[in-house]
Every structure is written in C-alpha cells, then in structure tokens.
Design a protein around this nucleic acid. Sequence first.
RNA 1: GUCCCCAUCGUCUAGUUAGGUCUAGGACACCAGAUUUUCAUUCUGGCGACAGGGGUUCGAAUCCCCUUGGGGAUGCCA
Length: 429
Amino acid sequence: MTVVRFAPSPTGFLHLGSARTAIVNWLYARHTGGKFLLRVEDTDQVRSDAKFLEEILEDLKWMGLDWDGEPIYQSKRFDVYKEKAESLLAEGKAYKEGDAILYKVEKGRAIEIDDEIHGKIVFNTDEIKDQVMMKSDGSPAYNFCCVVDDVELGITHTIRGDDHISNTPKQILFYEALGEKPPKFAHMPLMMGADGAKLSKRHGAVSIEEYKKDGFLPEAMANYLMLLGWSPGEGKEVISLEEAVKIFELKNMSDVQARFDDQKLRWFNAEYIKTQTTEDLYPLIKKHLDDGGITAEEDKIKELIELYKVRIKTTKDFVDLTRSFFTEEYPIDEKGLRKYIEKEGNKENLKIFAKELEKVEDFTPENIETVCRKIMEEKELKAAQIIHPTRMAISGRTDGAGLFEMMQVLGKEKVLERMKKTAVLCPPE
RNA sequence: GUCCCCAUCGUCUAGUUAGGUCUAGGACACCAGAUUUUCAUUCUGGCGACAGGGGUUCGAAUCCCCUUGGGGAUGCCA
C-alpha cells in the first residue's frame, strides 16, 4: 500500500508551495487508495510555534485535504534519533565531533536516484560532506531524522519539491546505513513568483492564510495549485479534488518549474464564486463587510450578492463594489464624473429622469425601466445617455449590476436624493 | 566556484515515454466585433511559442551534443 506524508515545519504560515506539495501528496495517496500522513517537523525549538501548526492544519482542512491518523511530532522523538545515531556510532559508521555525531560518507561512490518525475539522477559521494546526524545541542539534523521517521512510518513515496533533490543522496546514504530500503522519490519543480524568482513576500501574499483573507475560495486555490505542474488533459481546467483523485498520476507531472499567476487564480476564483449559492456566499461576504465596518440587513446583502456574484473575482471585491448601497461614505470616481455627468445635457436628463421617477409608486426594475424608456423616446436619447449618468450619480461608480436592479435595491428615496444632488452640485460645463 | 534540475505563445499548459496525423492545440491575460436600450457576464474572432547552434534521420517541438538562459543545493534551517 502507498504511504506518503506531508511534513510541515511550524515556523510560519502554510506557504503556497507547501500547500501544493500537500495537495500532490494527498492526490497520490487517495488515487492509489493509500495513506496520507502528517509529520510535524518541529525540531527547531526556537522557531517552531504551536500556533503556526494550528493554522497550517486548519488551512489544509480548509482546502479540502484530510489525513490519516494523528500527526507525528519530531520534537517528541529525540531519544529515538539519538539511539539510532549512537548505534551507527557503535558500528563505526559515524564519529563524534564535540557533542555532535557525524556520519562518515564513503567517497568515490555513485548514488543513483530513479526519480518518478525526473528520471535518473546521479550524484557522486565526492561532493557530499560528512553528514551531521545529531547536532551538538542534542537535536537531530533534518536529513537524519527525516529518514528515521520515513522508515518507521513505512513511507513508500517521498514526494517533495525540487529543492530537496540534493538532500536525497544524503538520505539514501542513511537508509543504507540503517539497513533499510529507500522509498521511491518524486521531486516536483518549484513554484516561482511572477518574475521567475523564488516566491517570497516580495511578491505579495505567499500563504494560504492571506489568500483566504483576501476572499479566495478553497476550491479555487486547490484547483489552481494542483494545475501547476499537472494537467488532467483534454483541455480540462476547472476540476475538483474529487475528480482529480480519479485521474491523478505522478508520472504525468511536469518537470518544469512554473510561475504563480495571480490573474489566472482570480479567474478560477470567479468561476467558483459564480457557481456558489447566495446562501453559501453570504457568511463569507458578511465577514468582509464586518471587517470593513459595514453593517446591513441580511436580506439586503443577499439581494446584492445575487446581483454581484457574477462580477466579482474575490468575495472581498464585493465590499468596494457595493459600498454605496450601505453608507453615504463612498468614493466618487472623478473620471467617471467628467465622462458621464459633466457632459452637455446629461445633468438636465438626470433631473428629468428624477422628476418622472417621483411619480413611480412601486419602485421595481420594470417600472423604472418603463419611465426611462419613455424619456428616451420623448427626448430621442440613447440609453447610454441616461443609464451611465444615473449609475454614476447613485453609486459614484461607472460599473455595477444592471442599473434598474441597482436602483430598486438602493430605494426610491436615496436614488432621488443622489440624482438631484449630483445634478445640482456638479460643477457647470 | 562546484554539483544538480529545467527550457513550447507574456503566463499556465497539450504534444516529448513509442520521431511523421503539429503550416504546434487549449486556458488566463490582452485587443477587436456581436449580444446586453448600460458596466460586467456570454459569444465570435485576433494577437502570440518549439531559446540558439550543431548533429542523427527520408523526416525532429519530439533523440544526442554544445552554448546561452532560468532555478535549486552547497547550514549543527527544514
């Protein structure tokens, strides 16, 4: 049976690259009906923090990943590593240097890796220095405890980033020293920033946590991340974890590093937002509204979600797009003002429209449209000459939902108030 | 410096394992047009790539070599 593991170090939030590694491991485990284990690499006592771990676990769950059994903590296994190291010491395969225990690397040997993604990779042990197993402070070194644990966990496939390629021959040496058979290795190309450089804070958000906060849906994150380096084929792109599990193959993974593209992620996110129900979107959007200090009735928010969910790329986008429906403190697009209001006759049209609107008892999109159409015919105007200035006047923006729906939600009183105000206060031509 | 990984449109990719069906397909982005009496959506079209040079072959995006370019590793971090 396949056994894989995801091994986060709780020294920070779940990085996008780690998230992708987790997804690939999970996909492979579920596809093969194997196990997906979690190992917490918290040997660095100083930098590790339980808070980070909590966050990482939560983010994994959020993306739709689950794991088998309880996570293993390396910090609780120091005595195991020490014992293994000392037995190698006793066998003469290692030596002490101060309080540290180092493994003696035999020179002039070729170590071959049959990588599932890259194929054959050969290293010469001449390039490998003697390896630290136990540091002088009594904590184990990464390559050593990693091997000890992978053996104990019965890991069959070590799937990790390309940055570990050079660790692999060192680890194979440890497998040999311990008299164990190494697992299969699969090194996946690294994920880079938009400029091709290592994905770092310089590129903006690099953790799942930040994307979550910025209004991205877990389905979109998982979908986009799994597609970086893997393709389901047949031009398929929008794919759920469940569907991907069925057809995922390690061998189909690309060996070329990919750049993380925010634009495409946003497109995926919009695709998923569109298919969500208003009911499901509500709590997410409510949260953004709360964070922005905006309060409103649930029904009104839902009405607007209905109107706006096809035009937002993140759930957070909703806040700026609909601010004018909730408060009088909303920004006015100056450029839009010049384009639509300060034009010959537009203010006059606004006044006429407002005047006619006053007579409308039932403020429905249909009734508003009837009035609008009547004025158009009488004055021989084009729709744009009324619609654009009106949207600008009532929302301060040039974009938005269908104008008549917007007017209904805003309500007759506010609509008239803003239209009149705009028509009067705006600087003259 | 040394070792290792990699190289198809701006970006993600299909095609490379089994060389011909590829005047290289799709998606994002971008640009036009259509629809929407409106921004957006939607639809249609356009732009746009096999890094360069040598081989092998009847034939190379696909195989080999070199160069160039990018990335990673060279910690008692993980």
